[in-house]
Amino acid sequence: MGTRVELYRFGDGAADALALAQRAIEQVDDALTIHRPSAATALNEALRRGETGVIDDPLLLDALIRIDDARAMTERLFDPTVDMRRATVRWERLRFDRSAATLACDAPAALDFGGFGKGYALDRAVTALRDAGVACALLSAGESSMAVIGEHPLGGAWSFAVPDPRDADRTLVEVALIDEALSISSTLGLGLAAPERAAMVRPGRSAAVVAPRSAVVVDASGAVAEMLSTALIVADDEAAQRLQDGVRRMLFDLAPAAPTRIFA
C-alpha cells in the first residue's frame, strides 16, 4: 500500500495480537498491490491481454465481491477500473463470475484498488484483533483511514478532529467513533500526487476531478467508508446530495476561504 500503518492495543488480548493484525494487513497488501508481483498484477496482465483472469487468491476474490456488492450503494461511482488511460472501460464491461472465480472483459482493462485497499486491510486487522481477544484498539493507515475497536481507553467515544488539507491548524469537522472506521479523501495535498488513479476520476470522464473538496465518511466497515469517500469526491452535485447524510457522510467545498459543507 505504500502507507504507514500504526496499530495500538489497550487492555486484554493475546500477546501476539498485534503481530496477527500486522500479518492480516500484509496479506491484503500481498494480494491487492499493483506495484509488485501479486495476485492483482497477475489478474491485470490477463485482462490487458484480453484473456479471462482466474482469481486464485481468496482475498482478491473477496475484495472483488465486496466491490461488486457496493456498486449500487456508491451510485456506481466507485469504480476500480476507471483511470485516465482507459476512461471508456468501466466495471459494467467486466464479466465477473463469482462461482468460477474468473474475471474477463471485451476490451483491455486493469484494476486499481486505491480507494478500497487501506480500508479493507484495516477491516481484516480489526477482525484479527477481535479474534485475539482485543476489546480496545486504534488502527491508522496513513492518517486518512482509521478504525477503532470498542470505546476509548478512558471511556466514551474516540474523538477525531479532521484537519483542513490546506491548513493543518484548521478543523473541517470532529467525529466520534465506537467500533467504527473513518475515511478521508481529498483532491488537495497528497490527493494530487497521482491524479490519474481511479479514485480521482469520475466514471465516464477522461479527466481527473480537480475541484478543491474533501470527503469524510464514518462506517462500521473501513472498506465501505473508503469506497463512499471516494464516490463523494468524484460525484456530481446531484449524486453528492444523495450520497450524503450530513452526519456520517460529508463533503466539503474547499474553494471558499472557510470550508463549506456541501448540501448539508
Rank of each mutant, 00 (worst) to 15 (best):
5 V>M: 01
7 L>F: 12
11 G>T: 01
12 D>G: 03
15 A>T: 04
18 L>G: 04
19 A>P: 05
23 R>V: 11
26 E>S: 04
28 V>D: 14
29 D>P: 13
29 D>W: 05
31 A>Q: 11
32 L>T: 09
34 I>F: 03
35 H>N: 14
39 A>Q: 15
40 A>S: 11
43 L>A: 10
44 N>R: 05
46 A>P: 07
46 A>C: 12
48 R>N: 14
49 R>P: 02
55 I>E: 04
57 D>P: 12
62 D>A: 12
65 I>D: 03
66 R>C: 03
66 R>M: 02
67 I>W: 08
68 D>W: 12
68 D>Y: 09
69 D>Q: 04
70 A>S: 07
72 A>K: 00
73 M>G: 00
74 T>G: 00
76 R>Y: 04
77 L>N: 01
79 D>Q: 07
79 D>N: 11
83 D>L: 11
87 A>W: 05
88 T>K: 03
88 T>W: 02
88 T>E: 11
89 V>F: 02
93 R>S: 03
99 S>D: 10
100 A>I: 14
104 A>G: 03
104 A>P: 12
105 C>M: 12
107 A>Y: 13
108 P>Y: 07
109 A>C: 10
110 A>L: 06
110 A>P: 13
112 D>K: 13
114 G>M: 02
114 G>V: 03
115 G>M: 14
116 F>H: 12
118 K>Y: 11
121 A>K: 08
123 D>L: 09
129 L>Y: 01
129 L>N: 01
131 D>S: 07
133 G>K: 00
136 C>G: 00
138 L>N: 08
139 L>A: 05
141 A>Y: 13
144 S>N: 13
145 S>C: 11
151 E>M: 02
154 L>G: 10
154 L>V: 15
154 L>A: 09
159 S>T: 04
163 P>R: 06
165 P>G: 09
169 D>W: 12
170 R>D: 04
171 T>L: 15
172 L>C: 08
173 V>T: 05
174 E>H: 11
179 D>H: 00
187 T>A: 05
189 G>Q: 06
193 A>Q: 01
194 A>N: 09
194 A>F: 07
195 P>Y: 03
196 E>A: 04
196 E>G: 12
201 V>P: 03
201 V>G: 02
202 R>G: 07
203 P>Q: 09
205 R>F: 14
206 S>H: 15
208 A>S: 09
209 V>K: 15
211 A>Y: 13
212 P>D: 09
213 R>T: 13
215 A>E: 03
217 V>L: 01
217 V>T: 05
222 G>D: 03
223 A>K: 13
224 V>R: 08
226 E>G: 08
229 S>A: 06
236 D>N: 13
237 D>T: 04
239 A>V: 00
241 Q>N: 01
242 R>E: 01
243 L>G: 00
245 D>G: 00
249 R>D: 02
250 M>S: 06
254 L>G: 06
255 A>M: 05
260 T>K: 07
263 F>I: 11
263 F>Q: 14
263 F>S: 13
